[in-house]
């Protein structure tokens, strides 16, 4: 963490870049990091939290191993992005903004990733999955779930 801070000068202007560097390394902003930054930039921890919490990019809890971002920009919305989100929520049994109990997946909604022509899109870690359908959800989640304790279970079919 100290390494991440060291490359910067002690200027207020660098606060957000420093937090971004820390998050890149740690995937979130642990309280110890905020403490260190506050000493480094001579700002109160309160002040840093007031800024960090303002920006959507910063997380304050450790995210899952894989981060799944569901784009809900306009184009994704009119092409049914919300159905994709709900479908993934059901499959992983976690709400957007949360992390699965096994710590494997975090689910996030994002406003627009600028791939509107390929809507609806889902980004898994760095990979963009385009023109998503409910059927496709199964195919990209499948390989990620293998190795995890829970596999996608086919729902029991209710007969008469």
């Amino acid at each position: 963490m100290r390494e991440a801070i060291k490359q910067f000068t002690k200027s207020r202007e660098n606060l957000i870049p420093i937090l971004q560097e820390i998050q890149k390394a740690e995937k979130y902003l642990p309280p110890e990091a905020i403490y260190e930054v506050s000493r480094f930039l001579n700002l109160s921890e309160n002040e840093i939290y007031s800024i960090a919490t303002f920006y959507a990019q910063f997380r304050f809890a450790r995210p899952g191993e894989h981060i799944i971002k569901i784009c809900l920009g306009t184009a994704c919305h009119v092409r049914g992005g919300i159905n994709i989100l709900e479908s993934i929520e059901r499959k992983l049994n976690v709400q957007a903004g949360g992390t699965t109990k096994d710590g494997k997946f975090s689910l996030e909604r994002v406003a627009c990733v600028g791939c509107c022509a390929l809507a609806p899109v889902v980004i898994v870690d760095e990979d963009v999955h385009s023109k998503m359908t409910m059927k496709k959800v199964e195919t990209f989640l499948g390989p990620l779930l293998t190795g995890s304790k829970k596999k996608v279970k086919m729902k029991k079919i209710n007969d008469f």
Binding site: S11, I16, P17, F54, Y55, F58, A111
Partner: peptide
């Protein structure tokens, strides 16, 4: 190069200035 931190309002010019200065935008 300054990288934004995910706040739509930063597109508003006075908000962007605060963001570059390291403040709430």
């Amino acid at each position: 190069v300054k990288i934004g931190a995910g706040a739509f309002v930063c597109g508003e010019e006075t908000a962007m200035l605060f963001s570059i200065e390291g403040k709430r935008s």
